[in-house]
Write a protein that binds this DNA or RNA. Structure first.
Length: 931
RNA sequence: GGGCCCGUGGCGGAAUUGGUAGACGCAACGGACUUAAAAUCCGUCGCUCGAAAGAGCUUGUGGGUUCGAUUCCCACCGGGCCCACCA
């Protein structure tokens, strides 16, 4: 018979809430150790809960339930990451206020999660769109604005501790303000945004995935816009190094490190010359002109010594300074700052072509860029550079394969040692010089050789020179070998000659923190003609998101808030003059960057969380989330936390990492292993499953579905197997309980439900009546399997191997079939099942005569002596092949086992007429005869 | 192109530090109960040969290390995810 889950699931859910079973104790009156478990709070979309959500909620719930039963003060909170685009777009489409849509979605999600029986502490529920919450998001933004990164102490500090150099101070107040603004953790900068020319709106990256507009499907362009940025790049090195302090899955650490993308190399300055020096076209294409020091002195710059990049030098970044002898041209990104200047002062002779190329690049969508990787570019006529190592004059090009955002936005092209440079050189017939041997070798070679007299200690270079294509770059001597010595040597030469130095760069970009959207936290900043960007006074927070008539983005690409003329007008907090509010809002990553801090003290109106609460709960002991957030949310929130930590808003005892442990769940796929999607019609709705099978079956099935960290396909048939299991567990437990009733009735004429003054608990009744059997100390036939299961299930939960934990519970349940149990063993059995099937366990627990929740009972202990096996099965092999198996006492030594094994008929057969050369014996496991 | 992950029966998946491959579940087949079906219970279940005992083969493919490899190493094939002109 199926167990009647409908009779009691909602009853217990209400009772748990009423009893506060899952409420964490406040830091102040808590005893014992704390445990803070966290799942990524959901975005309450209109789609409703996906079956993937409960997989991780249940998994962590199971771990939290066990911790709670082990006596820990568990914090397992839930909330809503509710600002964001899908809601805004839905609101626009249906002409409803986003706040209203959000409220509806939250109500729906709440219901869906509550019927699952997850043990969340709902008393700490938070919502990022609640002014009481975003008050502090705004407050933190101001703290970012009011701080800078001090490289000396390697941490963020208040901006008023920034010392302004004398020479800047002398330049006046504007210069001082600029000096400060250029260093703030939150700053305004022109950056490219995705722009849909058809819809005339700016798009978030996620709306412009693949270079296509999310709304109209048309191509997306780049446009420049001033945006708020957060200086996460200052933390690049710490975000890598401090991973050493935390326990994250290796693949998570690896992808964060790769995302930050540290590379070591050198920055090298190439002096610029004017083209009039170059004699002829022929000379230019056939021979790279070798300059004498005399000629160099005729260049615009008389010395090759460059201590920093200026108008007369281009700075490049390279990870291979050892190949500098092969650098035959420079390439700048089309929007390199020097180009605008050269265009202006007329240095560039082919200005028209250059400008045309710049425009073309800007129009090029990401999609085109991805699809068509053929090299394009334009030579800058009239400007050249001098390779500091070879002293040769080399041309300068612009090309979109050089990215403005990485390194210095300029490269030295070494076509013989870089595929992209080679492709480019081939196409535009540029010289290719292969550095055949590292320039540290004291051998001198051949034809068009670049020799650097500048290098110390008679260092010479073997190099070959080709013009144009016809050269295959393969099996290069340097590439793939250890070039570190050569690199080191060159760098020290560069440094000695002041034309370059060691440099580290990162792929990580600063965080674009503005959205030209409505449904986000207003940025609490004011622009004043006299004072520049000024934050609101703290007592003015929260700056409420005003209601607007129309949520559509504006034609100008500004946020809808820009149409609120009254709201925009504000007095400057500093000088009181007329000023204008910022109309951009924050990205949805803002609220999620610190929500785990708010859970510690969610109702605090004086601060984002009290120091005391933070001290008690932080860091998060276990944080579970999807791999897709590894390089965004997880990195952002680590950064955010570090800034708050550096500024002293988080007690130092919490440590400078927010999460001690990070684990990852995987996806639940549709039947057959394809992704669930509305269009494929294979979406499974959790509500339907709960209705059809009950929450306990649904939960347990999702745990049984496969390894937690791996994707698993949904199977409507497999869930039936789990239902059968819980039916069996239910019937088994009821049978045991009925047995007590019968025995009590027969022997003592008491019913189990005897009046409370006689007894509430079965075992009390039993003790009162001193009935033998029920609580007997006799050896029971299930002693081994029960104790082993307690051990195994406990370990599996700790190690997040939920699938094997469930299978062990199945084995246990099958083995207990038809065996009368001691009441204390039934209690242990129910406790083992409780984390997986909390409703059923609670119901049976109460039927057993208990009044308090099973989820607050102590986790069962196993008796190690019951697990020790006295007799073991040993596999017997002949030449590594299994020929039989024998029983032997546990720990038996070789001679005993060998004797038994040799008498085994099948083993005998294979040993017959052969001499045993060697015997390998592994205690309690295997005996192998080598003949 | 770079990084990460995964290949085990008809299916989802088990297998401590290398030690009896296929736990547990699904499906399938045979049986019991039933007027019948469902549900439930009992049994069989990697492949090939064999009545059976047993033998051979088997963890994507090919090599290697080892007494012994799903596990470790090398190469290849297939699939997935993320990033992608990152100098």
């Amino acid at each position: 018979m199926s167990y009647p889950y409908k009779d009691f699931e909602s009853k217990w859910q209400a009772w748990w809430e009423e009893q506060g079973v899952y409420h964490a104790k406040e830091a102040i009156d808590a005893e014992g150790e704390k445990f803070y478990g966290l799942i990524e709070f959901p975005y309450p979309s209109g789609e409703g809960l996906h079956v993937g959500h409960p997989r991780s909620y249940t998994a962590i719930d199971i771990m939290m339930r066990k911790k709670r039963m082990e006596g820990k003060n568990v914090l397992y909170p839930i909330g809503w990451d509710a600002f964001g685009l899908p809601t805004e777009n839905f609101a626009i489409k249906t002409k409803q206020p986003p706040a209203q849509v959000t409220a509806k979605n939250i109500a729906n999600f709440t219901h869906q999660i509550k019927i699952l029986g997850v043990g969340f502490d709902w008393s700490r529920e938070i919502n990022t769109t609640d002014p009481k919450y975003y008050h502090w998001t705004q407050w933190m933004f101001i703290k970012f604005f009011d701080s800078w990164f001090d490289e000396k102490s390697n941490k963020a500090r208040p901006i008023n501790e920034l010392i302004i150099p004398k020479e800047v101070e002398e330049q006046g107040i504007d210069a001082m303000r600029k000096y400060r603004d250029d260093r703030r953790m939150a700053f305004k900068q022109k950056t490219e945004i995705n722009w849909c020319p058809k819809d005339k709106i700016g798009l978030a990256n996620e709306e412009a995935a693949g270079g296509v507009c999310d709304r109209c499907g048309g191509p997306v362009e780049k446009r420049e816009k001033e945006q708020w940025m957060l200086r996460i790049t200052d933390y690049s090195q710490r975000l890598i190094d401090e991973l050493g302090q935390v326990d994250y899955l290796d693949k998570i650490k690896t992808s964060q490190v790769n995302w930050i993308g540290r590379s070591e190399g050198a920055s090298i300055r190439f002096v610029i010359s004017v083209s009039s020096v170059i004699s002829t076209e022929a000379e230019k294409s056939q021979n790279l002109k070798q300059y004498t020091s005399k000629e160099i002195s005729r260049l615009r710059r008389t010395s090759l010594e460059m201590t920093k990049e200026d108008d007369n030098a281009v700075e490049v970044f390279t990870t291979r300074p050892d190949t500098i002898f092969g650098a035959t041209y420079l390439v700048l990104s089309p929007d390199h700052r020097l180009i605008a200047q050269w265009l202006e002062d007329g240095t560039i002779e082919n200005a028209k072509d250059v400008k045309a190329y710049q425009t073309k690049t800007k129009k090029k969508s990401d999609l085109e860029r991805q699809e068509n990787k053929e090299k394009t570019g334009v030579e800058l006529k009239g400007v050249t550079a001098i390779n500091p190592a070879t002293k040769k004059e080399i041309p300068i090009w612009i090309a979109d394969y050089v990215l403005s955002g990485y390194g210095t936005g300029a490269i030295m092209a070494v076509p013989a040692h870089d595929e992209r440079d080679f492709e480019f050189a081939k196409k535009f017939k540029l010289p290719v010089i292969k550095v055949v041997e590292p320039p540290i070798l004291d051998t001198m070679f051949s034809q068009d050789v670049a020799v650097s007299k500048g290098l110390q200690g008679n260092v010479k270079v073997k190099a070959e020179c080709w013009i144009g294509d016809g050269v295959a770059v393969n099996s290069d001597f340097l590439d793939g070998h250890d070039t570190s010595k050569a690199t080191e040597k060159i760098i020290s030469w560069l440094e000695k000659n002041k034309v370059g130095e060691k440099k580290v760069t990162y792929k990580l970009r600063d965080w674009v923190f503005s959205r030209q959207r409505y449904w986000g936290e207003p940025i609490p900043m004011v622009n004043c003609d006299h004072c520049g960007w000024v934050p609101l006074d703290e007592f003015e927070l929260p700056l409420l998101l005003p209601e607007v008539k129309n949520y559509e983005p504006t034609d100008t690409g500004e946020s809808p808030l820009a149409t609120m003329t009254d709201w925009l007008k504000v007095k400057c907090p500093i000088c009181g003059a007329k000023a204008r509010r910022e109309t951009d809002t924050m990205p949805n990553w803002a609220g999620s960057s610190w929500y785990f801090l708010r859970y510690c003290d969610p109702h605090n109106e004086q601060e984002f969380a009290s120091k005391h609460a933070l001290k008690y709960w932080m860091p998060v002991d276990l944080y579970n989330g999807g791999m897709e957030h590894t390089t965004l949310h997880l990195l952002y929130s680590r950064f955010w936390y570090k800034v708050l930590f550096d500024l002293g808003y988080i007690p130092s005892s919490c440590g400078n990492e927010p999460y001690s442990m990070r684990r990852s769940h995987a996806m639940i796929l549709g039947e057959g292993g394809i992704k669930m999607s509305k269009s494929k019609g294979n979406v499974v709705n959790p509500d339907t499953m709960v209705e059809q099978y009950g929450a306990d079956v649904f939960r347990t099935y999702e745990m049984f579905i496969g390894p937690y960290e791996m994707d698993a396909p949904w199977s409507t048939k497999d869930i039936l197997g789990v239902r059968r299991f819980l039916d069996k567990a239910w019937n088994l437990s009821l049978t045991q309980i009925k047995n007590y009733e019968l025995r009590i009735k027969n022997d003592g004429e008491y019913a189990l439900r005897a009046p409370k003054d006689v007894a509430g608990r079965v075992e009390d009744v039993v003790k009162t009546l001193s009935l033998p059997g029920i609580d007997s100390e006799d050896v029971q036939p299930y002693d081994y399997i029960l104790n082993y299961s307690i051990k195994k299930v406990g370990e599996d939960i700790d190690n997040m191997r939920f699938n094997t934990a469930v299978s062990q519970l199945m084995i246990l349940t099958n083995e207990l079939q038809g065996k009368p149990m001691r009441s204390r063993d039934v209690r242990s059995y129910l406790k083992l099942i409780a984390p997986f099937a909390p409703h059923m366990a609670e119901e049976l627990w109460h039927q057993l005569g208990n009044d308090s929740s099973i989820h607050l009972e102590a986790w069962p202990q196993f008796d190690a002596t019951k697990i020790v096996e006295t007799e073991v099965t040993i596999a017997v092999q002949v030449n590594g092949k299994l020929r039989g198996s024998i029983k032997a006492p546990s720990g038996a030594d070789e001679t005993v086992v060998r004797k038994t094994a040799e008498s085994e008929p099948n083993v005998q057969k294979h040993l017959e007429g052969k001499t045993i050369k060697k015997v390998i014996y592994v205690k309690n496991k295997i005996l192998n005869f080598i003949v």
